Simulated scan of single mutants.
Amino acid sequence: MRQQYSKLRATIERMIQDIVFNGVVVRYRDWIKVGNLGEVVTFEDTDCKEIERLHKACCDVTEAHDPSSAKNIPVPTAQQLGIDIAALVAVAQSSRTKRDAKKKRPN
C-alpha cells in the first residue's frame, strides 16, 4: 500500500502540472509555455481542498517520509486506495470539463 500511495502522490503532482496548469509550467523545463496560459482554469476551493486531502493522505503513508510513530496511523486498505484514486479522477475530470467549457466561450 505504501508503494501504491507513493505512485498516487506522483500522479497527483503530474495531474497538477499537466491538467490543472495545462503544461504551462513543467518541472525542470527552463521555459514557460505561454500559449497554453489561456486554457488554465480557475481552480475552485473544493477541488483544491480535495487535492490537498489526497496529497496529505499519500504523504502520511508513503515510503518517502518517515511517519511519526506517535501518530500510529494505519496503512490504508486497498478499498481506501480505490476511493482515493476515484476522487483524483473526479478532480481531473472536473478540471478538464472546466477547461473545455472555457475554450468554447467567445473571447
Rank of each mutant, 00 (worst) to 15 (best):
M1H: 00
Q3H: 02
Q3F: 01
Q4A: 08
S6N: 07
S6D: 12
R9D: 07
A10I: 06
A10R: 06
T11L: 06
I12G: 00
E13D: 14
E13F: 07
R14W: 04
R14Y: 04
R14T: 11
M15E: 11
I16K: 05
Q17P: 03
D18P: 06
V20M: 15
V20E: 13
F21N: 11
G23V: 03
G23H: 08
V25C: 03
V26E: 15
V26T: 15
R27K: 15
Y28D: 15
Y28I: 12
R29A: 15
D30K: 12
W31L: 13
I32L: 15
K33F: 14
V34C: 13
G35Y: 09
N36T: 05
L37F: 14
E39V: 13
E39K: 08
E39P: 03
V40H: 03
V41D: 12
V41R: 13
T42I: 13
F43A: 12
E44N: 10
T46F: 09
D47G: 07
D47N: 10
E50G: 03
I51N: 02
I51Q: 02
I51R: 01
E52G: 00
E52V: 02
R53P: 01
L54F: 01
L54T: 04
H55P: 00
H55A: 05
H55E: 08
K56W: 05
A57G: 02
A57N: 06
C58L: 01
C58M: 04
C58F: 01
C59E: 14
T62A: 10
E63L: 11
A64N: 13
H65R: 12
D66K: 10
D66F: 06
S69V: 12
S69Q: 10
A70C: 08
K71A: 13
K71M: 11
I73H: 05
I73P: 02
I73R: 09
P74R: 14
A78H: 11
A78K: 12
Q79R: 07
Q80T: 13
L81P: 02
L81W: 03
G82F: 03
I83G: 05
I83L: 10
D84Q: 00
D84G: 03
D84M: 07
I85S: 03
A86G: 07
A86D: 14
A87Y: 02
A87R: 02
A87M: 07
A87Q: 02
L88A: 08
L88P: 02
L88N: 00
V91T: 05
A92H: 03
A92T: 14
Q93C: 14
S94H: 08
R96M: 15
R96D: 12
K98Y: 08
R99W: 04
R99H: 05
D100W: 07
A101F: 07
K103H: 08
K104C: 03
K104S: 09
R105I: 06
R105A: 09
P106S: 06
P106Y: 02
N107W: 04
N107S: 06
